[in-house]
């Protein structure tokens, strides 16, 4: 028996590893279930490497910039950039709030609340299997990041939502271009509603619009509807690039998202839980 185990050590270890991973896969199916502790632990160990590298890279870049730039001008510029960044985010959110609230006092209360609810984060790594599916940001649970928090780009366009695993200083964000993502949306001018799913190749599909519907046109803007209970309504998502009738019950509507993963350096996380927004 011992001799057999010694001789077949290699194949036995291979089988054990395969079974272990089959078990890991099977406990996650159907996909979308909670992340297991094993995955969270691995993420917590290895995502700080990306964080550290980006911080190191940024600090070297900053050192060089400080050396060649006039310090005061640079810091002023930085401050203004920060202000613009916040103002853009606020503007998008306020447009939505203003539509909903009518009384002046209520608007003023919301203004101060919104300022406190935006957290600026930096993307530190892209999905290693498909960069159009997820990204990792340099803010985690110690900054108040929680699952399902909404992420916007510098211009206030929708990027995605926080999913697990979330470590102390890092969190994973599912992009709207991921084929597993879903966002409740409607067209800006005609209010045709539907569900936006990513195609995994950088584009999205505006699904569940009946083939008989004549209201949608190419070039029309798509915004969040707020009906999914995660994304607040009124956030800019993208524009319709093609509408095809393929003989089925629904139209095939392709949407090009406004955010560009290639230029996704800084993002804004709305640090309010979906339940507080709705």
């Amino acid at each position: 028996m011992t001799l057999f185990l010694k001789e077949k050590k290699g194949p036995l270890i291979l089988i054990a590893l395969i079974l272990f991973q089959f078990l890991l896969i099977s406990i996650q199916l159907p996909s979308g279930s909670e992340r297991n502790y094993f995955e969270k632990a691995i993420f917590s160990i290895f995502s700080p490497i990306q964080h550290g590298f980006i911080s190191f890279f940024n600090s070297i870049g900053d050192l060089w910039k400080n050396y060649i730039d006039l310090r005061r001008v640079r810091s002023q510029n930085q401050k203004m950039k920060e202000e613009i960044f916040f103002l853009r985010q606020e503007n998008i959110l306020l447009q939505n709030v203003l539509q909903k609230l009518k009384r002046e006092k209520e608007i003023q209360n919301s203004l101060s609340e919104l300022q406190e609810n935006i957290l600026v984060a930096e993307t530190i790594g892209l999905d290693l299997s498909n960069f159009l599916k997820s990204t990792i940001i340099n803010k985690g649970s110690m900054h108040g990041i929680k699952k399902d928090m909404v992420v916007l780009d510098e211009k206030g366009n929708l990027v995605g939502r926080v999913i697990g695993p979330i470590s102390l200083k890092e969190a994973k964000v599912q992009l709207i271009t991921d084929n597993e993502s879903g966002v409740g949306v409607f067209s800006k001018s005609k209010s045709v509603s539907g569900l936006l799913n990513g195609d995994g190749n950088g584009m999205c599909f505006f699904n569940y619009v009946l083939a008989t519907n004549q209201d949608l046109l190419e070039g029309e803007e798509v915004i969040t509807s707020g009906k999914d209970g995660i994304f607040p309504s009124g956030i800019r998502v993208g524009k319709i690039v093609s509408i095809v009738k393929d003989g089925t019950l629904f139209k095939k509507i392709k949407v090009e998202p406004y955010f560009d993963v290639r230029h996704l350096n800084r993002v804004a996380v709305i640090i309010r839980e979906p339940t507080e927004i709705f």
Binding site: G10, L17, Q21, F46, L128, S129, K133
Partner: peptide, 25 residues
């Protein structure tokens, strides 16, 4: 090879979205 493959695959999976264990396997 098998053990390192499992470790590297699971690290790759943890830094990606999707089902944890696919790259590992």
């Amino acid at each position: 090879g098998a053990c390192l493959g499992a470790a590297c695959g699971l690290i790759q999976d943890s830094l990606s979205v999707g089902v944890f264990g696919v790259s590992g396997l």
